[in-house]
Design a protein around this nucleic acid. Structure first.
Lengths: 114, 114
DNA sequence: ACGATATTTCGACAAATGTTGAAATATGAA
DNA sequence: TTCATATTTCAACATTTGTCGAAATATCGT
């Protein structure tokens, strides 16, 4: 990951509501979550939410797809991993102290428990 | 680490020059680096640099001490580790996928090789 | 086609951000 | 004390950011 991308990703996560959105999407897993569901969960105005989704999407941390009249947003785990990789590399003076700081979606317990 | 602190740390790192400053301080190790040395290395105006140091310091990512007429800034590895911990936790839906994403200063090769 | 639901677009706005130049402060050397 | 060095403080400024309300767009059900 390039420095530019890291700055973009960091900036995308460096905001209260946006960090909440991303965390929620991460918990939702790869299937994602509708914009409305996120709006309900976090009590955010739909247009405000669109603004934040755009930021996250531009930073590559989120993807969208349409499902009927809903827009389904999903966390991009790879990008988040890339960011963690960048941070750990740089945090350890180029000599990574953590072999693989991989981030996978939680084992889909949602499928089973819900 | 609390969400508030994470947002602060992310915001502190989410800026080109500031990320450069922090990376430089990380490479410098726990002994740190004078403000002037950082200014020279990154070609930043001293007052601009003070502004960025303040941000990093407020976020807990950096500490200062005076040495003669110089101010020595040093990276706070613990805080960076805390941030990485927060991110990996949340990135993995509360079930951390990486046991310990620890970040230590690079083994002080500077002492030997320079 | 019509109405309802879901989301985005647009225009506005206060607040925060990053940079600059000039002046102030602090330390050390002569 | 006086001068030079190192850094901070202050006041500006253009730009970006986050939020809001109102209107537009898209899809679905009838």
């Amino acid at each position: 990951m390039k420095k530019t991308d890291a700055v973009a990703a960091l900036a995308a996560l460096a905001q209260d509501n946006r960090l909440d959105v991303f965390r929620l999407l991460v918990q939702a897993g790869p299937e994602g979550m509708s914009a409305g569901a996120v709006a309900d969960a976090l009590d955010l105005a739909p247009n405000t939410l669109t603004f934040h989704f755009d930021r996250l999407r531009t930073a590559g941390l989120v993807t969208v797809r349409r499902d009927g009249r809903s827009m389904i947003y999903a966390a991009q785990f790879e990008q988040m991993n890339a960011l963690l990789g960048f941070l750990t590399e740089n945090c350890c003076s180029g000599a990574p102290c953590v072999p693989s700081a991989a981030c996978k979606p939680a084992r889909k317990r949602a499928k089973i428990l819900t």
